[in-house]
Design a protein around this nucleic acid. Sequence first.
DNA 1: GTGCCACTTCAAGCCGACTTGAGGTCAAGC
DNA 2: GCTTGACCTCAAGTCGGCTTGAAGTGGCAC
Lengths: 145, 145
Amino acid sequence: MRDLDIAEVAQRSGVPASTLRFYEEKGLIASVGRRGLRRLFDPVVLQRLGLIALGRAAGFSLEEIALMFAPDGRPRIDRQKLAAKAEELDGTIRELTAMRDGLRHAAVCRSPSHMECPTFRRLLTAAASGAIGARRKKAALPKRR
Amino acid sequence: MRDLDIAEVAQRSGVPASTLRFYEEKGLIASVGRRGLRRLFDPVVLQRLGLIALGRAAGFSLEEIALMFAPDGRPRIDRQKLAAKAEELDGTIRELTAMRDGLRHAAVCRSPSHMECPTFRRLLTAAASGAIGARRKKAALPKRR
DNA sequence: GTGCCACTTCAAGCCGACTTGAGGTCAAGC
DNA sequence: GCTTGACCTCAAGTCGGCTTGAAGTGGCAC
């Protein structure tokens, strides 16, 4: 397949051109050349963008993701890091599950005020102790066209 | 109990003084007066900080949390919002669970490269489709002294 | 050959939740 | 009464991941 210009990559990947330039600047992707000023990308960049999206979804930072590609551009995915991230996710899942159940209870609880509900108060204690202190970003909805 | 100065509140709550001032500015907490320049807080602020921590842990923004207190300062917690947040968490939990399982598999997978592993490729597809696009913040470790 | 306009660069802006720093004040202990 | 230093204010900085805007360029259709 022939090389793609940035608009084509954007269209096929769903990643905005501005983000592609940003990723190139950060060394996450590379263009194979130019036609005039315009970047040309090898179609293989699409797979790479997929890996980047996966890494982001798994909670890796762009910097961490960058380290997962060898200088030659081949993925060099570290199984230990994957396992560590899986463990991290597992912890987060447990916290979120506790929080979800607590919220669900609080939402239907018949105590006159939340302050009098033991379940709510347990949540409060847990939050104060930092046991469920994970701060999460809102899911940044992928802008699919 | 007598009023507390900001250092006492910080110490008892684990919330830095700078954050307490910030929260006051945002209307999340209020001081009851001053001794000279220094803020004095009613001890009830500690409970309030607990609620704020809980809200943050549940994924509410400071702005949303501010709306959960009536002008008189009493919590006015909306059961619908709690239920909605619980649903949101539930979705996140499902995504994270899929991701965790995928990562775990990828970490032990015997395929020569991740690209040849069907499980990994499935994850890739899911991430690309936005089905698991939740971006989460790292848990901001509570600075307990 | 010339006009269009999608691309280019570079700097700056944005978001949320705070933190940091400079410079000022004042209650309390000596 | 004077020093001390913990507090005060206000502005600016930080972090990550992008987006936006102004000003420039050059390939391609006509």
